[in-house]
Amino acid sequence: MKRFVAYTAIFTSLALLLLAVALFMPNPVVQHNMLGALVDKHELLRKTGNIGPRIVLIGGSNVSYGVDSKRIQEAMQMPVVNAGLHASLGMKFYLTDLQPYIRDGDMVVVIPEYSQYYTDSFYGNIELVSVLVDVDRACMKQIGPGQWWHLMQFIPFYAASKLKVSRAPATDAPVGVYDRKAFNSHGDAYIHWSKPGIKFTPAQKAREEDRVNPEAMKLLVDFQEFVRAKNARMVLLPPAYHSTSFVNQKPLIDKIYRAIREHNLPVIAKPERYVLPDSVFFDTSYHLIRPGIERRSELIIEDLRRAFP
């Protein structure tokens, strides 16, 4: 038995050592893909911070891959920054990450994907680990012990994935939909706008046992207080959503909407309003192509005008 335990311990130590080395190896891919754009979004938020109140859109890829910020800017006569990136970074991270950039008079429009309201995905997953390790290590300071505990489970997998042979795209390669260069000066990913939609599997039917996570609600309530303290304003909007997925997920979305209302969060539209035809989606239930982006941007403009006449 002792021999077995000793051998297992040696093997486990070797494996951990290998993974530790792999974890801190440079990752040429992540700095060139959409996650690498986090640094650019920080820069955009910093640069626009001195030019007066802004509209800051925040959320996952439903925001980065589903809005025309320029159109909103023209209609609202206010600079617009699209700070959304990827849902897998988790709502906790992207709301915390945004805090230092919020200025007096800013209008913060929070649009989380529905997955952020239930399970514990608002803590982020493997994409957040890759951002913390390979995009901006300074972000590690934002992560508390509870969130680290949650992220621990992804670290070995991320470390091992770095051992796969991968290369950064060639400098003269065309810009891909999920490249860092796929974002315009407002922070909107735009390469896919004129592409046709790709067939994808809609969200599965909601399970009866799915419940809204009270921690996600608390996170939003705390963020709202923070925004208020900064003399800025916050509103909450539902994401644009694929109609077939909406039908499948409706019972859960209703629960989410009820919970948002019960927590007195400033939601300014019902989920149904942002349900768009399947034909205007790109490759997931949240990413839009041009007709969808135009429609959704109009809806956002109408809702913001109504909320802030």
């Binding site: 070797l14 494996a15 290998l18 792999a22 997998f157 470390a159 091992a160 051992l163």
Partner: peptide
Amino acid sequence: RWSMYLFLLVLCLANYKQ
């Protein structure tokens, strides 16, 4: 032998999907 085991372990971790 151990390198082979480590190789397989890393492959599993790298390809793991939740």
